[in-house]
Each structure stands twice: as structure tokens, then as C-alpha cells.
């Protein structure tokens, strides 16, 4: 495990087709678990009107924002369909159910 990765919990802490949040000094990150037990992490902030993406309905590898139904890809962070916009994604590693996130994309780390 690279030292850039920080432990955040276990995959069973997140419901299938659901999300939990990780609070950081730079805002919330939403960690999603799909129906196929894949895990993705993106900023918990819809590019449209800052809606909490962690509260959205998860389907396939995408989430629908609860405020105005923008659909965001969990893999790329980009808005799907006719909408435009993008959120930051973060690498996640799963080791025997334990989850680790790399926050190298956060602004402070980018310096």
C-alpha cells in the first residue's frame, strides 16, 4: 500500500448502491459502493448547484443528484447526457474489504 493512501473504513460500512461521506479540511468526499461492489470516491458537490451527490440514487457506475437530477459518472466525474460539468475524482484501493483513499488531488497536496 502506497503511503499516499489513507484508511477510511470497510466496504461493509457503505450500503450497496449507496454512499458514505469522508470529511476533509477541504470539504466532503462521497465514497460510493455500486451493486457490483466497486468503490468510487468523488467530491460530494454537484457541479450544477452544489447538491450533495452522496444522497443521490446510485445506478450502474453513476449517481443522480438529489437536487436537480444531473447524472454524474462515478468513474470519470463528468456529467452524463446533455448536461455539462465535472467533479474531482479520487483513487480508492480496496484491500480485503478495507478502503483506502488517495487525497493527492486535493488542492493542498497539489502544491
Amino acid at each position: 500500500m502506497s503511503s499516499d493512501f489513507i484508511a477510511i473504513g470497510h466496504i461493509d460500512d457503505i450500503p450497496q448502491r449507496g454512499a458514505r461521506c469522508v470529511n476533509t479540511a477541504f470539504g466532503r468526499i462521497a465514497v460510493f459502493r455500486t451493486a457490483e461492489d466497486e468503490v468510487f470516491a468523488i467530491d460530494d458537490r454537484c457541479p450544477h448547484k452544489a447538491g450533495p451527490l452522496s444522497e443521490g440514487i446510485v445506478h450502474g457506475r453513476a449517481v443522480t443528484c438529489p437536487l436537480h437530477n444531473m447524472v454524474i459518472s462515478l468513474e470519470s466525474g463528468t456529467a452524463q447526457g446533455a448536461d455539462e460539468g465535472e467533479v474531482q475524482t479520487y483513487p480508492v484501493q480496496v484491500d480485503d474489504g478495507r478502503l483506502f483513499i488517495a487525497l493527492s488531488a486535493l488542492p493542498l497536496a497539489a502544491e
Binding site: I8, V22, T24, V31, L108, A109
Partner: peptide
């Protein structure tokens, strides 16, 4: 509840 709270990440 949040799943985890992480402090300032160390600069790379």
C-alpha cells in the same frame, strides 16, 4: 454519520 474524518493531507 460520516464514514471517516481525515485531517490535512501531507503535501506530496
Amino acid at each position: 454519520k460520516p464514514m471517516a474524518v481525515v485531517g490535512h493531507p501531507e503535501p506530496a
